[in-house]
């Protein structure tokens, strides 16, 4: 199992936010992507999750010696990011049901609610949740897909101490299932990773 990026770059219109990113990641590994605000962390992690087309370079995901096509790749990955909102007028359980049903999977909402510390609230509409609870929904959604490649953008945003422990637990479990990429500037998040990839503004150093 390998995640490979080669010369990855992305422009939005005339604005180039990222260029020439190359790295490789294997099974059980956890990498943190760090960098200043606006350095392109979220753009990079979206491209790695197969949700944004690179405008330069390429990225592949290999499982059991086979390079995955775009569709397979997406069903093997899941991204939790601040820009991804759960549906406000659905409950925790309904959000999870929709997400996994669409991907052709099934999920145990009860178990996931317990893992992210939302048991007892899973039938309430997400509308009534606090921002920390919404963040827990995002994590649960990504986990419900049982992804081989898990992508976490700012995973501990809005979270309290118990929430941080949950993220640590999620990353620990993911080591057994596949690989993890975390985009963050938080020291705690970065400490979960084996190594760090730093995005710097300006020319290559």
């Amino acid at each position: 199992m390998r995640l490979v990026a080669e010369g990855l770059g992305r422009s939005f219109g005339a604005r180039r936010v990222l260029r020439d990113v190359s790295f490789e990641l294997g099974a059980g590994e956890v990498v943190a992507i760090c960098g200043a605000n606006g350095s392109g962390k979220s753009t990079l992690i979206r491209m790695l999750a197969g949700l944004l087309m690179p405008s330069a370079g390429q990225t592949w995901l290999e499982i059991a010696g086979r390079w995955l096509g775009a569709q397979e790749r997406r069903s093997a990955s899941a991204l939790a990011a601040p820009g991804i909102q759960p549906y406000l007028h659905l409950s925790f359980t309904e959000n999870l049901q929709f997400f996994t049903q669409g991907r052709g999977q099934s999920c145990n909402a009860e178990e996931l609610a317990e893992l992210v510390g939302l048991s007892g609230r899973q039938s309430d509409l997400v509308e009534s949740y606090s921002s920390g609870m919404v963040q827990r929904v995002r994590l649960a959604l990504a986990l419900s897909a049982e992804p081989v490649a898990l992508f976490l953008d700012e995973p501990t945003q809005f979270l309290d101490a118990s929430g941080r422990d949950i993220v640590a637990e999620i990353v620990r479990r993911q080591r057994l299932r596949g690989l993890t990429v975390i985009a963050t500037n938080d020291e705690f998040d970065a400490s979960l990773a084996d190594r760090t990839l730093t995005l710097t503004t300006g020319r290559p150093t």
Binding site: G9, R19, S39, R195, T198
Partner: peptide, 16 residues
């Protein structure tokens, strides 16, 4: 107006 685009700088032993 902008210094330039972002590029990756591997640290702590990334095999770039």
């Amino acid at each position: 107006s902008l210094e330039g685009a972002t590029t990756a700088h591997p640290a702590s032993g990334a095999d770039a």
